[in-house]
């Protein structure tokens, strides 16, 4: 209260200049963050031939839905979209089940092996065997070109585990004790007391995992590139980008995907690229309001621990 009064009282030239400059700077920064995204959305709604003239800003110049009709008519893109959805759901479910169970066991102070197990997990945050040894392991487990490679090696992350354990430790001991007095087993305490009380942290971790799962392309690229059926959306996007890079920026045959759509209507590689980018980003943009809140919360929880 008092500090506010003091600050108000000093509202003259110096703070005014500072605040103006601050607002201008932050506004410019916001524009820099948003412009590429909005511009891509505008291009995705713009006529292909018209877009070649360049100079499209924040709004489509010659509005059309042809780009979306073309992209959503491509089987590779559509199948990859659903594969992305599928792998995201499976990864979220397995992660939540496994991480919460382990976090519950590790959050119990009377469980003696809890500390060494936690340490073994935390250590994995600081080293990694590297690409090749991991590749050989996955290969020898027979997981190349399989759906399993999407969710089995990624079932648990040390960071999420620590966040959950930290949160579960804040649940009052007395609650668990009284449940035990009533004869509840550890499983029942986990399912009926700890899980319902942990909803905020479960949501946070679920969103962490979902964003990671949706955004990844590397496992599809390294392990599943031999199977079109298992391709995910980000990997298809990467292919479109790669062939665009390969052919150079002037070429009209930027990608197979774009070729498939050519001739059908006035679409060009440029507008098709923009459209696929938007399709790959839309799920994230839709859930962004939730993401933002829970993610910040999660990072702060993690920060407390480290």
């Amino acid at each position: 209260m008092k500090s506010k009064i003091i600050r108000r009282g000093k509202l003259h030239a110096e703070p005014l200049i500072f605040h103006t400059l601050n607002y201008v700077f932050l506004a410019l920064l916001c524009i820099a963050m948003l412009y590429p995204i909005v511009n891509t959305i505008a291009v995705s709604f713009n006529d292909g031939l018209d877009a070649v003239r360049g100079g499209i800003g924040l709004w489509p110049r010659a509005f059309t839905l042809d780009n979306y009709r073309t992209v959503l008519g491509m089987h590779t893109i559509l199948d990859a979209f659903w594969m992305s959805v599928y792998r995201t759901v499976v990864q979220v479910v397995t992660n939540i089940v496994v991480t919460s169970m382990l976090a519950f066991a590790l959050s119990r102070r009377e469980f003696k092996p809890g500390r060494p197990i936690a340490l073994i997990f935390v250590l994995t945050m600081y080293f990694n065997a590297g690409l090749i040894p991991n590749f050989i392991l996955i290969q020898s487990l027979g997981m190349v070109n399989s759906f399993a490679v999407y969710w089995v090696p990624t079932m648990i992350s040390a960071f999420n585990l620590i966040i959950m354990r930290t949160y579960m430790r804040t649940i009052p001991e007395a609650l668990l004790e009284s449940a035990k007095l009533d004869g509840a087993s550890d499983f029942r305490i986990y399912l009926q007391i700890v899980m319902p009380l942990s909803k905020p942290v479960l949501a946070t971790v679920a969103l962490f995992v979902a964003v990671g799962a949706w955004n990844t392309w590397f496992d599809a690229f390294i392990y599943n590139s031999g199977s079109q059926r298992l391709s995910v959306l980000q990997y298809e996007l990467q292919r479109v980008l790669a062939s665009a890079m390969m052919q150079g920026q002037q070429s009209s045959q930027s990608s197979q995907a774009a070729q498939a759509g050519m001739g059908l209507s006035m679409v060009t590689p440029q507008t098709i690229r923009a459209t696929i980018t938007v399709v790959a980003a839309v799920p994230i943009l839709i859930v962004y309001p939730f993401l933002q809140r829970y993610f910040v919360h999660g990072v702060q929880l993690g920060g407390v621990k480290e």
Binding site: Q234, I284, V296
Partner: peptide
Amino acid sequence: VLYLPHFLSWVI
């Protein structure tokens, strides 16, 4: 606004 790009994939 400033947090938004963090959530987009590297491919995007």
